[in-house]
């Protein structure tokens, strides 16, 4: 059964199409990754699914029911974790979660139970009576998640839930996503961090300019890049490394330097490793390591768009 069906959906702002004739299905039990650069149209898509925006064209169904015809049914089955923190500073963690869960019709002792459960789940059980202003960025993010799950929605949509937080909180959140999934929730996970998406998602759609340019499991996506290979060369100093000269070597698709690591993409069928090394020796780079990387989502994105995900 599909939890979500998006059919030929377009959303225009003025004459700019933020989402352009998109079609997409999410099956029950998936952790569906929605990967794309900033401005690709991820949030806009999510906002249409959660009835915050109306699609200009196309249909959206939640659990087989059209959201325009059954808005309450759709809304009741979705929990949304917004990209920006959406909590009240004047309410305690407990009051925040209880308030939002109450809007989904929970009452009395059940409301209290689910609120406590949600706070426990994100590891804020002992902070129930504290106000968000005493929280770290990661704790606020976790509260942001608790507010979306207390009513036990079938579909949880997370819009970049790990932006700007410490590694500890990030791991905590990624683990919570897996746990929620094990508990039976279907999850749509939006991110522009390909490592995260690669780590937890069972299926991934890559979005660019409002369109889905590739969709499938990690393995299926990586199979797209059989014709390119990725070469990483560690250097002691970035100075004097002639990136331009490397780019002009036959077969090289792209070259960049990132924290002492030269990252090259090259056509798979051309063996140009000798020329690359010679060029680096000429420019007196102090080579520390050379390795050929297995294809990752970054290279998939690069192959498909000719751009890097983070640019």
């Amino acid at each position: 059964m599909n939890v979500l069906d998006i059919r030929n959906v377009t959303k225009t702002f003025g004459d700019f199409a933020a989402v352009d004739n998109m079609s997409l299905s999410v099956r029950e039990g998936e952790i569906f990754g929605f990967l794309g650069a900033n401005g690709a149209g991820k949030s806009t898509t999510i906002h249409m699914v959660s009835s915050l925006l109306k699609a200009t064209k196309g249909d959206i169904e939640i659990l087989g029911k059209n959201i325009a015809k059954f808005p309450r049914f759709a809304k009741a089955n979705i929990g949304i974790v917004p990209q920006d923190l959406a909590i009240y500073e004047q309410l305690t963690a407990y009051e925040n979660v209880r308030f939002f869960a109450g809007l989904y019709g929970l009452r009395g002792s059940l409301l209290q139970e689910r609120t406590e459960e949600a706070l426990e789940f994100v590891g804020l059980g002992d902070k129930a009576k504290s106000f968000p202003k005493s929280f770290s960025g990661g704790m606020k993010r976790r509260l942001n998640i608790a507010c979306a799950i207390a009513h036990r929605p079938k579909l949880i949509i997370m819009d970049e839930p790990t932006v700007g937080i410490d590694p500890h909180s990030r791991n905590y959140i990624l683990q919570s996503v897996r746990k929620l999934n094990e508990m039976g929730c279907t999850i749509i996970y939006t991110s522009h961090y390909m490592e995260e998406v690669e780590e937890i998602c069972t299926r991934i759609a890559i979005v660019d300019h409002g369109k889905i340019i590739a969709e499938g499991t990690k393995e299926q996506l990586k199979a797209i890049v059989t014709d390119t290979k990725e070469i990483w060369i560690g250097v002691r100093s970035e100075e004097g490394v002639g990136i331009e000269a490397l780019r002009s070597i036959p077969g090289i698709v792209s070259a960049r330097i990132d924290d002492g690591m030269i990252k090259l993409q090259s056509k798979a069928e051309i063996n140009n490793l000798n020329e690359i090394i010679q060029q680096l020796i000429r420019s007196r780079a102090d080579i520390r390591s050379v390795e050929e990387q297995a294809p990752n989502l970054e290279s998939v994105f690069l192959t498909l768009t000719g751009r890097n995900l983070r640019d």
Binding site: K75, I80, P82, A86, Y88, L103
Partner: peptide, 13 residues
């Protein structure tokens, strides 16, 4: 401004 409008609109309300 607090982005809570988003949650309020997404709730069955």
């Amino acid at each position: 401004l607090r982005h809570t409008a988003l949650r309020l609109t997404a709730a069955p309300l």
